[in-house]
Each structure stands twice: as structure tokens, then as C-alpha cells.
């Protein structure tokens, strides 16, 4: 067994990809973080207080995890979905009755979306009550507010895509709110829907926003958000000296 592991890891090809040995020493454990594209957002060492579950409840990370699940299931659903009337609805039925695992993927996408909205909201609440929005993290809080709005918009644009009664009327109510904006409200609604009512143009626009524009914005936003957490010295922790100050 050990020989096999050694044979697998101790050669030029493996070492050209993974540039460190088995993480059994602190040096190699540092290199795991340091030389890995996906892990390099972490520092090599973390404060014990910062990684306790009850400090953050991992809400930010779990929100990102939901986003990952949504991208994965969403891309798969795109293989069977056509943003047209009435194909969109028929494709939903196909996903439900014909496509193998179609129901499951649609369910997972739907429930992950609801969960993500809830997790992002809770993440904001915890961040506020911990006082982590204060300088020097004020701009990251603002970014977080925008990410919350983007999450809501993603969820909302996705809501129209099944083209069922639920979708149609929820979106009717929502876009008429945009109409209430003084002066430019009417125009905004027209541009958003690509017409005077919710019809095929609106479906295509929501589809493009949901599948391309908003996810790209989200990836960019999350990247900056996480990057700034690192630049500000990791997640907020109250100063250890005066413990009476905070929870």
C-alpha cells in the first residue's frame, strides 16, 4: 500500500502537478495551501478562534457552496431547457417525466436556491451582530449587500423560467413594482421585459440574466469579497485582550 502510494506520488509527472509531498509535515501542509489554486484563498495558518463553527456557523462558505451546487445543477438543466413559449413549460414536464434524474436535478436546483437566499441573509445578520461590518471592512460589507441583492435577483429571474402560473404571476407583481419608480419606471419595465407584458421576450431576457449575466457578476463579486476578507487579515475577531467587549 505504502509502496503503491510512493509509486504514484514519487514521480516527475505527479510532482509537476502537485509540487509537494504527502502533507505529513508542517512544511508540506503549508505547501498544500500555498501551491493549490483552489486553496490559496486561505492563509497557511489560521487562528483557532476564527475556525470555530460557532463563530461564523460557516454561513459565508455554505452560501458559496450553495452557489456551486446551483451552477453545477443549473448547467445540467440547461441541456434540456429552451427559453421559448410554450417549450419552456413542456421542457419542465419533460424534466419531470422523461429525463432520467430530471426531477432530482430540478429539485436540487430549486431547494438550493431557496437555501442560498436564506443562508446569505443569515450571513448578513450574523456579520452585523458580530460587528464585522466596521472599518476597515466597511466596503466589504457594501459588497456583501450587493451580493445579497444579486442572490435575490438570481433567484427571482430563475423563478420565471418554468413558465407556469406561479412563475408568471410572481414576476407580474414584481415587475409592476419597478413600474412604480417615478419618471423612468415605465421605461425600466419595458427594457427589462422587452415588451409591454410578460411574454417570450421577457422569458429570453430573464434567461440570459439568470444563466449568464448575474452568475458572472456573482463570481466576480464573490471573488472580490473573499479576497478582501484575506486582505483585511481574515474574518473579524474581537480583540482577545478585552473579552468583556463582545461575545
Amino acid at each position: 500500500m505504502a509502496a503503491l502510494a510512493k509509486w504514484l506520488t514519487d514521480n516527475r509527472v505527479y510532482r509537476s502537478i502537485i509540487r509537494h509531498g504527502f502533507p505529513d509535515s508542517n512544511r508540506n501542509r503549508s505547501l498544500v495551501i500555498f501551491t493549490n489554486f483552489f486553496l490559496h484563498i486561505h492563509p497557511v495558518k489560521a487562528r483557532l478562534r476564527a475556525i470555530r463553527f460557532t463563530r461564523t456557523f460557516f454561513l459565508g462558505g455554505l452560501s458559496a457552496a450553495c452557489f456551486f451546487l446551483l451552477v453545477a445543477t443549473g448547467v445540467l438543466l440547461m441541456f434540456y431547457y429552451r427559453p421559448a413559449v410554450p417549450h419552456a413549460y413542456n421542457d419542465m414536464k419533460d424534466l419531470g417525466f422523461v429525463v432520467s434524474s430530471g426531477v432530482f436535478l430540478r429539485n436540487l436546483h430549486r431547494w438550493s436556491a431557496h437555501t442560498m437566499v436564506a443562508l446569505v441573509f443569515l450571513h448578513m445578520v450574523v456579520t452585523f451582530f458580530r460587528g464585522a461590518y466596521r472599518p476597515p471592512r466597511e466596503f466589504n460589507w457594501v459588497l456583501g449587500v450587493f451580493l445579497f441583492v444579486a442572490t435575490i435577483l438570481l433567484s427571482y429571474t430563475g423563478y420565471l423560467l418554468p413558465w407556469d402560473q406561479l412563475a408568471y404571476w410572481a414576476v407580474t407583481v414584481g415587475t409592476n413594482m419597478a413600474q412604480a419608480v417615478p419618471v423612468m419606471g415605465e421605461k425600466m419595465r419595458f427594457l427589462l421585459l422587452g415588451g409591454h407584458g410578460i411574454n417570450e421576450n421577457a422569458l429570453v431576457r430573464f434567461y440570459v440574466l439568470h444563466c449568464v449575466v448575474l452568475p458572472l457578476a456573482m463570481v466576480l463579486g464573490i471573488s472580490i469579497h473573499v479576497w478582501r476578507v484575506r486582505k483585511d487579515g481574515g474574518i473579524y475577531l474581537p480583540p482577545p485582550a478585552n473579552k468583556g467587549d463582545e461575545r
Binding site: F190, L191, G194, G195, H196, G197, N199, E200, N201
Partner: peptide
């Protein structure tokens, strides 16, 4: 860009 997004013909 805005004008591109504004449909000129509607099939309503």
C-alpha cells in the same frame, strides 16, 4: 447598448 435592448418590433 440601451437602444439595442429596446425592441423595435413587438409581436403582441
Amino acid at each position: 447598448g440601451l437602444r439595442f435592448l429596446e425592441p423595435q418590433v413587438l409581436f403582441e
